[in-house]
Design a protein around this nucleic acid. Structure first.
Lengths: 345, 345
DNA sequence: TATTAATAATATAACGTTTTCGTACTCTAG
DNA sequence: CTAGAGTACGAAAACGTTATATTATTAATA
């Protein structure tokens, strides 16, 4: 096991100073052609690579982006990560991913850990618990230390940072409009409690679509679940009751799993999709694509979102402190992917 | 924007030396009670946290694990990551995730990048292209530099590292045996080309199961696909032909998507699942759980795999260089999750 | 010939830590 | 009154870089 090659070792080996080696490798004109070539040849031969940690310390710059997300076993988040990774790699940045597991304390710990020199900035989607607690001191702290932050998907107000959002409202509206256009008139929605911003916005989109068609919103047709991502048995039961008790001809859900549960109940009831009941959901994942019938979905373009978030962050990082204090919100358009769970126009 | 607090700043502020501050904060008995308390109070008040980068440089230890995986939008890999994250966090390690996108060059670049001081060791699943090329110089290099490596899932031989594997053969055998036990006699398999180790092993398990029931393996009933994870239209067509041309009463597939495609064709043919055709697949993801009928799967326990891989790596990292050169292979058991796509016993 | 310029290298400081060693100072004992 | 032992602190080196300042040597100019 040989130790990693350092400037010092090269210097010793070639009987020159460390500075000379460093300069030679960076093609400084201060070093004679001859010495330069000799050093470079040696470095290449023994595969010298500068130590990132030392560079980070020296430059006070890690070239690393910290990503904090509630969970990773989730199609949308993984696509976002893929986008972040792509953009980061293109700009020579590393990505450190930490999971908050929707837990406030873990989010804080992870953030503080990474903030102590490990990353230059953050991309995050705040955990559910953080949203409930409305305690954002950890965010404000890193921001005050000069680390830029970009929030995506689940964002909160009142933080000095950029935001990248899916246009949840428009996406939901579009999805519901599609059902209206294809003849549905009694459309329900399965969404989340309002403290989850995406749930609230999607509900708003649903209502706007109905209003546009002059249909009065019926509170009974809005089912608000506790959890946006999982679906326990209790939750399945709720969906079952919801479908059975309301004679719907269209259902909009904020995720795939809710939609699939709807489909199951609709089948049980002996009804046909999409002829009797249309279904549209958010999140264009494996389930939507491969379910039978395949599901019409509002695609969130997570990858694009990730790329955009990374782009904004890197921009802030590369640009000197000029024109500080300018924060914006970027919206990523959704698109409706029509499949078998809705009638065609 | 205030700058991060350092020992130097504290020292200046309190008119003591840097060493004194450092010692006080680490509760050294060398420092008087009074001074110690004063320094600690100050540090706490202004929320001093040591700089990780400086510590890494000093200790030649980053407390960071590098994870390199082919892709992230994939249920199995995300569960593994979750397991790694858990175990890492429990032992105060960070996790850096890099995606190779199944591309050899990206795998090499990522690895070299992280090896230059960013991580203490690696957990990786080698990319498809790397397996094809059989070029493992990047692995050997980091190992020679003394960084331990743990390979999981897609492993290769001849590398000085630990391995954590799903018992693919046993898992497949079990799945096929279940169909045999429930009366299937003409069982086909949709797998991958043999250079993908998991594909090969699962095929072997399939064959062993048949042999155990005295059924001769028919090469025609083995469909080998190019790609283990994706399913293009061409691939769907292949599956369609395969199902239509062979009058199977059971199909085993190495992933969910293949299985779902099988189900689709079976439906088209007017046959019933599981009465006419049983289906069992690998990977217990969203699709298997929520598809109608839900799919009987071989669950890989990715989370456990991740935890185990991390545990082994951290063990190597924490333990001094004693008893080096001992590498083992750990098998993670699979379990069969019976659902609606197979008949009950 | 003495001064200036150019060339080619080295020394040093800095990034933020920890740790080893050294050094004042005070107190006790011979 | 001084040797020895604590006690409480500081200086300096080290981790691996890079950048600035400095020095030594040679070449060119007045």
């Amino acid at each position: 096991m040989r130790r990693k090659l350092t400037l010092k070792l090269i210097a010793k080996e070639l009987n020159v100073s460390i500075s000379t080696v460093s300069k030679a490798l960076r093609d400084s004109a201060e070093i004679s052609e001859e010495t330069r070539e000799k050093i470079k040849a040696f470095a290449k031969l023994y595969n010298y690579k500068p130590n990132n940690i030392a560079l980070s310390l020296k430059n006070r710059k890690t070239n690393t982006i910290g990503v904090i997300i509630p969970q990773i076993v989730h199609h949308f988040f993984t696509t976002v990560i893929r986008g972040i990774e792509q953009m980061a790699r293109e700009h020579n940045y590393n990505v450190i991913i930490c999971l908050s597991n929707n837990d406030f304390d873990k989010e804080v710990i992870n953030m503080e850990l990474l903030a102590n020199g490990s990353t230059d900035g953050f991309i995050l989607s705040v955990s559910k618990e953080t949203m409930l607690k409305e305690d954002y001191h950890h965010l404000n702290e890193v921001i005050e230390q000069g680390m830029p932050v970009v929030m995506f998907d689940r964002v909160v107000e009142g933080i000095a940072c950029d935001r990248v959002l899916i246009d949840d409202k428009a996406g939901a509206k579009n999805g519901v409009l599609h059902m209206l256009k294809t003849g549905c008139r009694k459309i329900g929605i399965i969404t989340t409690k309002d403290y989850v911003s995406v749930g609230r916005l999607r509900t708003e989109g649903y209502m706007e679509a109905l209003e546009e068609y002059g249909i009065k919103v019926d509170k009974k047709l809005i089912l608000k679940m506790d959890n946006i991502d999982e679906c326990s048995e209790a939750c399945e039961k709720k969906i079952e009751d919801f479908i059975k008790n309301n004679d719907l001809d269209g259902v909009f859900t904020v995720n795939e799993v809710f939609a699939v549960n709807v489909a199951r109940v609709v089948h049980q009831e002996g009804k046909k999709i999409p002829d009797d009941v249309s279904i549209v959901c958010f999140t264009d994942g494996d389930l939507s694509q491969h379910f039978i019938p395949s599901l019409t979905t509002v695609s969130q373009h997570g990858e694009e979102m990730g790329r955009k978030a990374a782009e904004i962050l890197i921009n802030k990082l590369e640009r000197p402190e000029d024109e500080e204090e300018e924060y914006g919100t970027t919206y990523i358009d959704t698109s409706l992917i029509q499949r078998e769970s809705t009638r065609s126009l």
